[in-house]
Design a protein around this nucleic acid. Structure first.
Length: 263
DNA sequence: ATGGCTGGTAGAACCAGA
């Protein structure tokens, strides 16, 4: 049975990170790489390194300065459009169809600002609205689908270094966790991270830059996710979070996730 | 320790990340 290896990584600028993205592709050789926070317009996206390694198919949704997502692939991609779930023009989603019949959706959920109260912090409201509109979309999905990306929410107590200390910190507040729970229930999405590494195991994908040594206190959060339709989850054979990438030269603050499927 | 760091873009006593 053919194997399909899909990776997802918030790289915090594709241009600043091009060398470690190359290293990752050479070491792991995924068939498809979904990127978030590319921070580049489509006409200045750097295609050369990807082409050199055989990743000839690029579907981009970028903008100047911030945000931006891309799907880079050795296999053909069929562009399936972009959703603007904040309705503000930001580039945070791109979807494709694969020849094997799976839909692949790459999403960068807004961070949501500092204060977890939409009346004083509009960004928090926009984040909740984004998840709510995604939920309406997810309810209508009928095809086998994989959603990957930076969801900017760590839902479980064991998804953060200290549940108690992060209850009021945007990314782990109950209102966000409940919204994400409604999204997950809307399609019976299987959280592949916890499918392979059940709670209460430690599983983190992001560590702040604002620590001299990210390993010293290990104050991580699981903000990045891969969610599969139930029939797609049945095809998943392996999953990992590539934690060592956080210690590479000029790292992203997020690390890659990889799932392998028998398709 | 409520600080700490990073990238893009402008050329900031900036913004955004989370």
């Amino acid at each position: 049975m053919p194997s399909l290896k899909i990776a997802s990584w918030n790289i915090n600028s594709v241009r600043a990170r091009i060398d470690i993205v190359q290293r990752f592709l050479e070491e792991e050789q995924p068939d498809i790489l979904c990127l978030q926070e590319t921070k580049v317009k489509d006409d200045t996206f750097p295609p050369a390194m990807f082409r050199k390694l055989g990743y000839d198919h690029h579907v981009l949704n970028g903008q100047p300065m911030h945000h931006g997502v891309a799907i880079i692939s050795k296999l053909p991609l069929h562009d399936h459009g972009r959703h603007d779930w904040q309705d503000n023009g930001e580039a945070r989603h791109i979807g494709v169809r694969l020849d094997c019949g799976i839909r692949l959706e790459n999403v960068y959920v807004p961070a949501g600002g500092d204060v977890p109260d939409r009346t004083v912090n509009p960004k928090f409201g926009q984040k909740l609205d984004f998840i709510e509109r995604m939920t309406r979309w997810s309810e209508t999905l009928a095809e086998p689908t994989l959603i990957v990306g930076d969801f900017n929410i760590a839902p479980l107590e064991c998804d953060v270094w200290s549940h108690k200390q992060l209850l009021d910190v945007v990314s782990h507040t109950p209102i966000e966790v409940e919204a994400l729970g409604r999204l997950q229930a809307s399609h019976d999405w299987v959280d592949l991270g916890r499918h392979f590494y059940p709670a209460p195991q430690r599983l983190h994908t992001w560590w702040s830059y604002r620590a001299t040594d990210w390993t010293a206190n290990d104050r991580g959060r699981r903000l990045d996710h891969m969610w599969a339709s139930p029939e797609v989850a049945k095809m998943a054979t392996a999953h990992k979070v590539c934690e060592p990438c956080r210690s590479w030269i000029k790292p992203s603050d997020h690390v890659p996730l990889i799932t392998e499927f028998a398709v």
